[in-house]
Design a protein around this nucleic acid. Structure first.
Lengths: 199, 199
DNA sequence: GTCTATACGCGGATAGAC
DNA sequence: GTCTATCCGCGTATAGAC
């Protein structure tokens, strides 16, 4: 039997530290040293588990992708109505963000501005966009919308808009943030009501 | 009389080079060396005109802010109808992006993920958000909308959504980009029509 | 104002012991 | 698996001449 309060193994501590620092301070601005210090791990140990910083970054993005997908899965499992399922995107983001360490905007969009085109983490940025577009298209089709592709594009736009509003909040704290997710959801619901079955 | 094809002075060449590299490759990922090489300027000359990389970054953001504001001003000067003026945001972005070197997403949102909170360039990120929110609020009021603040928040969300769609295009080239600005403009026009004078 | 040459620190990565 | 100690390069910045 394992003790609940035991210190997690080094790779886990590294990913936890990387998750906080990369997200809060940016990937390029965060040195490997800072991750090691927060994780309480020595350089050699890290390089025994990860090929280098790039691999650590990719693992960080993979973990975020999995967590996010699982969160959306969970919310979807609670919804029956087809339109509710389509709009569940916004509820899932709200739940995802309710966890600690998600106050800033979208980690994938942020990474997209930081990583070069050939970075191993790019794979997860593409996976993020693909998950959103493909799933929204399918859910829109299930809801009987005339043009699922078009619906997916519209909801993605609203989703991205809400994400960016959170990013702006970090640089312009004087401006009240309001409720971008609620706003985006309302706009989406309205759009679905108007354009739903007409095309 | 000055010759038209004369080489611009060093500070101008530096800003031009910085503008391309910072925008295309990211601020943190772009070394001063790369800017110097592209500008054809020696390190000492650069440091004679800019206190350091941070100052160069701030100047880069200031220039982008001024160019963008001027572009929007120009478009506004061509519009009379109050609703056209409110929606001119999307036309202005389209014009701004039509110039070379603006294929990626919003430089200010990108910078927000890269710069630390105390960076001198933060001033221009805040200025960007302020310009958008304040101007949209005023234009919404001019258009007689019941809740200008609310209208500004909605249009900002749509604007940010379109910007992010361009950012995603860089990481997921397989997905057709479509016309995010046109989509955002249509959604905005529809919203204004529906929520216009009712609140 | 602009150059060449150089100093200096930091961040990424490795060697070798335990 | 994990540590301490160290290497190395690159990116920022400066010195000093023209």
């Amino acid at each position: 039997m394992t003790t609940a309060s035991a210190t997690p193994p080094a790779p886990e501590r590294l990913l936890a530290a990387a998750g906080e620092l990369f997200y809060e301070s940016g990937i390029a601005a965060t040195g490997v040293d800072a991750v090691l210090a927060r994780a309480g791990v020595s350089p050699a140990t890290m390089y025994a588990h990860f090929a280098g910083k790039d691999a650590l970054v990719a693992a960080y993005l993979e973990r975020r992708h999995e967590t996010w997908r699982r969160t959306w899965d969970d919310v979807l499992a609670e919804r029956d109505d087809p339109v509710d399922r389509l709009l569940s995107l916004f509820d899932a983001v709200a739940r995802y963000r309710s966890r600690a360490g998600n106050r800033r905007g979208c980690a994938f969009l942020a990474a997209g501005t930081e990583l070069p085109a050939d970075h191993p983490g790019q794979r997860w940025l593409e996976a993020d966009t693909r998950l959103l577009v493909d799933r929204l298209r399918d859910l829109a089709a299930d809801a009987g919308l005339a043009d699922p592709e078009d619906a997916a594009a519209t909801l993605l736009l609203l989703y991205d808009g809400a994400m960016n509003r959170f990013a702006r909040a970090a640089t312009t704290p004087s401006l009240p943030v309001g409720d971008p997710l609620g706003r985006a959801r309302d706009l989406a619901a309205e759009w679905v009501g108007t354009h739903g079955r007409t095309g």
